[in-house]
């Protein structure tokens, strides 16, 4: 019985399973190894596309119109938004984001047609933004922009939240100084292309409303450092959001409890309006 039936059946099943598992195993290794063929294929295509698209899709009025940039909002014709998910309006029920909402506010004052370009990528940290600008793909956008809105740093800081307290405090300084140097790199790139444009850096709010004093202190320290960095450039405005969000988290946060909702974005837009206009 054992020799004739059970044994061969077990061997058969076990070898079959081993084969399946082995192939599954190889496949798992394959898909998680970044420099293997599969991911490379996918990434090879996009780089071509991205280099072409902005240039092809670049509006013709872009070139030539960067003579004198007036500080008056009335003359801000070309607006560029860069940075992370806040920049691209994640969480806004109406899909507008603070940039379009701000332009709406501006359009109440005048009837100027404004060109808006948004190169924000959700999930970006400061180093990625710096890299994005370094590629040179957006040089034209930067050169021609009259107003550049930057939202960055939230993801840098957010990573720290997932660590326990001890390591978080330990790594905070490191993260902050990395952020500041990335920010400096971003600003240098922008200024080297466009010394005249008005810039605005959106400050961070605390989406978690943590009672932990220590963490709150770190967030404020972060904002303070950003504000100091911003003050080095006369035409760089720091837009605080911390205070506005602090007491209205429930009203201003979207369902994911991290990004702002429409009302939240409206608040940021209004802060922009107050500071810049």
């Amino acid at each position: 019985m054992y020799k004739k039936i059970i044994w061969p059946v077990i061997v058969l099943i076990a070898s079959l399973l081993a084969l399946i598992f082995l192939s599954g195993f190889v496949y798992s290794v394959f898909i998680t190894t970044g420099d293997d063929e599969l991911p490379v294929d996918e990434q090879a295509v996009p780089t071509d596309d991205t280099t072409e698209e902005p240039i092809a899709g670049m509006p013709e009025e872009a070139i030539g119109e960067r003579s004198v940039i007036d500080p008056n909002p009335e003359e801000w014709e070309t607006v560029l938004v860069m940075g992370d998910s806040l920049g691209s309006g994640v969480g806004d029920e109406d899909g507008l984001g603070f940039d379009q909402r701000y332009l709406e506010l501006l359009s109440q004052d005048d009837s100027l047609e404004r060109e808006l370009t948004n190169i924000s990528v959700p999930g970006f940290v400061s180093s990625q933004l710096a890299d994005q600008l370094d590629t040179g793909e957006y040089d034209l956008d930067i050169e021609t922009a009259d107003l550049i809105l930057i939202s960055i740093g939230g993801n840098d800081l957010n990573r720290l939240y997932f660590q326990d307290n001890e390591t978080m405090i330990a790594e905070f300084d490191e993260t902050l100084s990395a952020f500041l140097s990335n920010l400096e790199s971003v600003l240098t790139t922008i200024r080297s292309l466009n010394p005249e444009a008005q810039l605005a850096l959106i400050g961070l709010y605390d989406p978690y409303n943590l009672e932990d004093q220590e963490i709150n202190r770190l967030l404020l320290e972060w904002n303070h450092a950003s504000r100091l960095a911003a003050s080095a450039d006369a035409r760089l405005a720091y837009i605080p959001t911390y205070e506005a969000f602090q007491y209205h988290l429930a009203d201003y946060l979207s369902d994911d409890l991290f990004h702002p909702n429409g009302a939240g974005y409206q608040t940021i837009a209004e802060s922009l309006y107050q500071v810049l206009n």
Binding site: P46, T50, E53, V90, G95, T117, N118, V121, D141
Partner: peptide, 25 residues
């Protein structure tokens, strides 16, 4: 509703031309 909203959000972002292709995929 949540899924629909997220879907709309994704699609509008996807339509953004300046988003790199790998992010779009």
């Amino acid at each position: 509703d949540l899924a629909d909203r997220r879907l709309d959000d994704l699609e509008s972002r996807r339509a953004n031309e300046s988003i790199p292709e790998n992010v779009r995929t």
